[in-house]
């Protein structure tokens, strides 16, 4: 009986140790997933948020992108647009955050693939965006490319994917 209890405790300790290991040293896939979740949270703001908070969020949003990052937007019903570099992204983010009453961004069905060099990653997801007071929302398939810079993963390219051609 004692041996059984000891073995059970040992197994529980091993499981807990493994869990702690994954918490403190997450896999690249998990890091990228967390990054995408934080990106959605940063891009989301409510009508109650002040201009200062919105400007702060727009500034934080730029921090997710590499210096040479590109955002390529080509959604149905809207003019195609390309943003190159952090400055353009920040300008567009500030403009968008100031003009929209509120914005809710969710990234659903995120799939992450880590490159063979372990320094790049690609993520595909469905962006669900709700802007304004209505319950209407837009959906758009997106593809993100990440590059490991130091210990951080930064977005080098974000582009819309045409689900229907």
């Amino acid at each position: 009986m004692k041996i059984t209890i000891r073995l059970t405790l040992l197994a529980a300790a091993a499981v807990r140790g493994f869990w702690l290991w994954t918490v403190f040293f997450p896999s690249p896939e998990k890091v990228v997933l967390q990054k995408i979740a934080r990106l959605a949270a940063t891009a989301t703001f409510s009508a109650d948020d002040s201009s200062l908070i919105r400007a702060g969020k727009a500034g934080n949003l730029v921090g997710f992108f590499a210096d040479d990052a590109q955002i390529i937007l080509d959604a149905p019903g809207q003019a195609a647009r390309t943003l190159s570099g952090r400055d353009e992204i920040q300008t567009a983010a500030l403009g968008g955050f100031a003009s929209l009453p509120q914005l809710k961004v969710q990234f659903l069905d995120v799939t992450v693939r880590i490159g063979a060099d372990r320094q790049t990653a690609e993520a595909t997801c469905t962006a669900k965006v709700n802007a304004g007071d209505s319950k209407d929302f837009g959906v758009q398939e997106m593809r993100f490319q990440f590059r490991k810079t130091g210990s951080d993963w930064l977005i080098t390219r974000a582009e819309t994917v045409k689900t229907l051609s």
């Binding site: 659903l108 069905d109 995120v110 997801c125 469905t126 959906v139 758009q140 997106m142 994917v161 689900t163």
Partner: peptide
């Protein structure tokens, strides 16, 4: 139904 990145939201 046509899936996007997954089946959470579909056309």
């Amino acid at each position: 139904s046509v899936r996007l990145a997954g089946t959470s939201v579909m056309f």
